[in-house]
Amino acid sequence: MSGESFQLIYIIGLLVIAYWVGSYREKRHYQSIIKREYELNRLPAVNLKTPPEGNFQHELVMGNVTISVDYFKRFLAALHAFFGGRVTSYETLLDRARREALLRMKAVASEKQALLVLNVKYETVSIFKGAGKNIGSVEVLAYGTALMAARNNAQVS
């Protein structure tokens, strides 16, 4: 078998494995995200900066996640980069990363028995160490100010 044939089979093999494993893991991740979003829906996280009236304790809460893009998505993104347009292969990656980061932030706030998370913001970083223009992994940090009931048991209205 010539070197070129071996290289072609190697790339096709990687694409097939990456697509199969990547799709399976993405599906599982989305199922987990939807389930936890439903569970944590009782804790609002908003981007308003003004706290409601009342007496609260407040604390910075954050959640971050780093998700790597699989070989298939990277290959597809390279094709997208050639022709332009929506890089659809990265849309699910960023969607999952933002929702997961927010969920982790909410989980931290929930442990602190927060009533509300204010001033929620995202920071997104592409981690591509040495990979040129390719996006290797993406890190998303979600942070906000958690409001907890003060000792006098204040209510948010």
Binding site: S23, K73, F75, L76, F82, F83, R86, T88, S89, D95
Partner: peptide
């Protein structure tokens, strides 16, 4: 926030 087109179909076209 995501495309509904199947990624394999996108791959084949591109």
């Amino acid at each position: 926030n995501t495309s509904q087109t199947h990624p394999l179909w996108v791959f084949v076209k591109l």
